[in-house]
Write a protein that binds this DNA or RNA. Structure first.
Length: 493
RNA sequence: CGGGAGGUAGUUCAGCCCGGUAGAAUACCUGGUUUGGGACCAGGGGGUCGCAGGUUCGAAUCCUGUCCUCCCGACCA
């Protein structure tokens, strides 16, 4: 059994790596644990980023940028945060190289150029940002501060995976400061809602909003809210987090403000982030054996037009004209479309290629079609082909893109919903994890010890306590102690 | 950091056990025929066999060291 699971996991990893590599999203790089995001993958990220950015601005946030390097003394100011990240920090200790006296053409680190204080390459930016906010905040009139930054961070993980866990990754991190606890808590949940909306509406990725248990909480946070998604292999993936930081960072960095009553108070903080990991989530949630399946709303390319032509120049010209007209119509309604009339590859090759890249809609036009004033429209998600009249084609395709977006979401949601399974006994609990996978909804006595013990036995962790959770009396799945509600367990990435 | 598998042409890999001229497929270039689901023919270019030592007349192959990658585990918000 264990062997089967291991081999299944290996196959799944292989499937995933192939999707990313052959889909043209990314490559391995020469640097340990890092990856190269290729133009196609980056275009996808840009679409996601632009949409998120709009949503942040719609909720009153502004972008700014803070330094990559964090002096060690600043980094260690918030103890829990520092401790949580200490094991995975890249550290700059020197600022200069010099020629190696014993090997021509080689360089060595100049021992003379040792930094007085080491610089930590940010694994997250709370420390630099709160050290800055300290100078920005004096009065309640300076609050709230609602800032987001798009940046890269470095976390020196033992084991990396394309997009899901790389040593360096791109993300956004919002850092807000508020006058009251209530306001900060509202902000935390508001941004969680933004993430959930983005995941579901744009990535077609159904997510469960919830709160983390103490052991899964962000280092330095009072509460960590998250959106959890389910992958097709039955493992869960944390897709985004929003943290209520309380006054922990304010106290660590001495960020106080004078309230209306002329009293000094510590400010209340939140931080929230999503990363290029979302691309991994997208790949694993929707793709099939023929390649990627990208949701139309964020796909770099929504429609590809493939001409079917031979040496007949006259026929090719007609196809070009028809395709050109169709392209203009599609662009007019805001569709991202490409006409691939390259002579390097034949139609069959192109079909396979664009399927691998997950382009939602393919339109094939040949001389035969033009005689009949039609074209062949194929959708990537179901692989259905239809012959559609060229009259009103743009409108048809626009509608089809919406249908596909919806269909991908519904499919993922049906899978997810079918994989939230209640367990009422330990045997059942283990059996579901081993055989079916997905989320297991079970009672838990609320203690970190029990959570650890369950993890030890099954590798499953508590993904979250869903926000809209029903209260229900029950007994802990492991210890039998009383419990007031079920929580969601799963094996996770 | 432990276990396993690997590093040879742009890519995927064979060759290694048993040392003796560097291979295949694919991609690429030229010409031609093709084009409705990854075309075919002919010709051509391309590799410090991860790196460093050692053994040997001779090393991709054997030995030692070292670096890197992937998978599993540990670790990880």
């Amino acid at each position: 059994m264990a062997k089967e699971i291991t081999s299944r996991q290996q196959d799944y990893s292989q499937w995933y790596n192939d999707l990313v590599l052959k889909g043209g999203l990314a490559d391995y790089s020469a640097v340990r644990g890092c990856m190269v995001i290729k133009p196609y993958g980056y275009a996808l990220w840009e679409n996601m980023r632009d949409q998120l950015d709009r949503m942040f601005k719609d909720t009153g946030h502004q972008n700014a940028y803070f330094p990559l390097f964090v002096p060690k003394s600043l980094f260690e100011a918030e103890e829990k945060n520092a401790e949580g990240f200490a094991k995975e920090c890249a550290v700059v200790t020197h600022y200069r190289l010099k020629n190696d006296p014993s090997a021509k053409g080689k360089l060595i680190v100049d021992p003379e150029a040792k930094l007085e204080e080491e610089l930590v390459v940010r694994p997250t930016s709370e420390a630099v940002i709160w050290n800055t906010y300290k100078d920005w905040i004096q009065s309640y009139r300076d609050l709230p501060i609602l800032i987001n930054q798009w940046a890269n961070v470095v976390r020196w993980e033992m084991r990396t995976r394309l997009f899901l866990r790389t040593a360096e990754f791109l993300w956004q991190e919002g850092h807000t400061a508020h006058a009251t606890k209530d306001e900060a808590m509202i902000e935390t949940v508001k941004m969680l809602d933004v993430y959930a909306k983005f995941a579901e509406e744009f990535m077609a990725l159904p997510v469960i909003k919830g709160v983390k248990t103490e052991s899964e909480r962000f280092a330095g946070a009072e509460d960590t809210y998250c959106i959890e998604a389910l992958m097709q292999d039955g493992k869960a993936l944390q897709a985004g987090t929003s943290h209520f930081l309380g006054q922990n960072f304010a106290k660590a960095f001495d960020v106080k403000f004078l309230n209306k009553e002329n009293q000094q108070e510590y400010v209340w903080a939140t931080s929230w982030g999503v990363s290029t990991r979302l691309i991994g989530a997208l790949v694993m949630a929707h793709s099939d054996d023929d390649g990627l399946i990208l949701p139309p709303k964020i796909a770099p390319l929504q429609v590809v037009i493939v001409p079917i032509f031979n040496k007949d120049a006259e026929a090719k010209k007609k196809i070009d004209e028809t395709a050109g007209r169709l392209m203009r119509e599609l662009k007019d309604i805001g569709v991202r479309v490409k006409y691939d009339d390259s002579d390097n590859s034949r139609p069959g090759w192109k079909f396979a290629e664009y399927e691998m890249k997950g382009v939602p809609v393919r339109i094939a036009i040949g001389a035969r079609d033009i005689e009949n004033n039609v074209a062949e429209v194929a959708r990537r998600d179901t692989k259905e082909k239809q012959t559609v009249s060229l009259e009103g084609m743009a409108g048809y395709v626009g509608g089809l893109l919406n249908d596909i977006q919806q269909a991908i979401f519904e499919k993922a949601k049906a899978y997810r919903d079918a994989h939230i399974t209640p367990a009422n006994s330990w045997d059942e609990f283990e059996k579901i994890l081993d055989e079916k996978g997905g989320f297991v909804s079970a009672h838990w006595d609320g203690s970190a010890e029990t959570e650890d013990a369950i993890k030890e036995k099954t590798k499953a962790t508590i993904r979250c306590i869903p926000l809209d959770n029903e209260q229900e009396e029950g007994k802990c799945i492991l210890t039998g102690k009383p419990s007031r509600q079920r929580v969601l367990f799963a094996r996770a990435y």
